[in-house]
Amino acid sequence: MSLSTQIDQDIKQAMLARDQVKLRGLRGIKSALLLLNTSGQEVNEAEELKLLQKLVKQRKESAEIYKNQGREDLAEVELEEVSVIELYLPKQLSREEIEVVVKKVIEATGANSKADMGKVMSAVNKELAGKAEGKTISEVVKQLLA
């Protein structure tokens, strides 16, 4: 079942359950998916995962800004949407699990300095697509290549 179909079904269920939090998050996903589908580029599962990760990142950044400005009410709304969107993402790996994958890639590519970071990041991002945030991956690679 495609992500769009799943989202449509979940929107109907949220409407019937009168779950406003879930409904708001699902409508955000549906809107972003429609924009992606009308952009003219080919949409596959990997693109959908990237989109969901982008939505989570945007909402977390917005929540942080709202907290810094003393708007806990708006930050809470953003974090509620994050929790809904994360339901459609694969389980995120822990930092230790990411380190294992990065070490394996470093050995396979023969990287030994920060100059090789791009090569390592490229390989790790392909392997961990949708399973870890790019920021965390970057931190681990920097730490291990230092």
Rank of each mutant, 00 (worst) to 15 (best):
S2W: 07
S2G: 09
T5C: 04
T5M: 10
Q6T: 14
I7M: 12
K12H: 02
Q13P: 00
A14Q: 01
M15A: 08
L16N: 10
Q20Y: 04
Q20C: 00
Q20I: 06
V21C: 01
L23E: 12
R24P: 02
G28P: 05
I29F: 04
L33Q: 08
L35R: 07
L35E: 13
L35M: 09
L35H: 10
L36H: 06
N37Q: 14
T38F: 12
G40Y: 07
E42P: 08
E48W: 00
L49M: 09
L51W: 04
L51Y: 02
L55D: 00
V56E: 04
K57G: 00
A63L: 09
A63V: 06
A63K: 04
K67C: 09
K67L: 15
G70M: 07
R71H: 13
E76N: 13
V77R: 04
E80I: 05
V82D: 14
I85T: 11
I85S: 10
L87N: 14
Y88G: 03
L89E: 01
P90E: 02
Q92M: 08
L93H: 07
S94M: 03
S94T: 15
E96S: 06
V101W: 03
V105D: 04
I106M: 10
E107A: 15
A111V: 10
A111H: 10
S113C: 15
S113K: 12
M117P: 02
G118P: 07
S122E: 14
V124P: 09
V124W: 13
N125C: 08
G130I: 09
A132Y: 03
A132I: 09
A132D: 05
E133N: 11
G134K: 08
I137P: 01
I137H: 00
V141P: 03
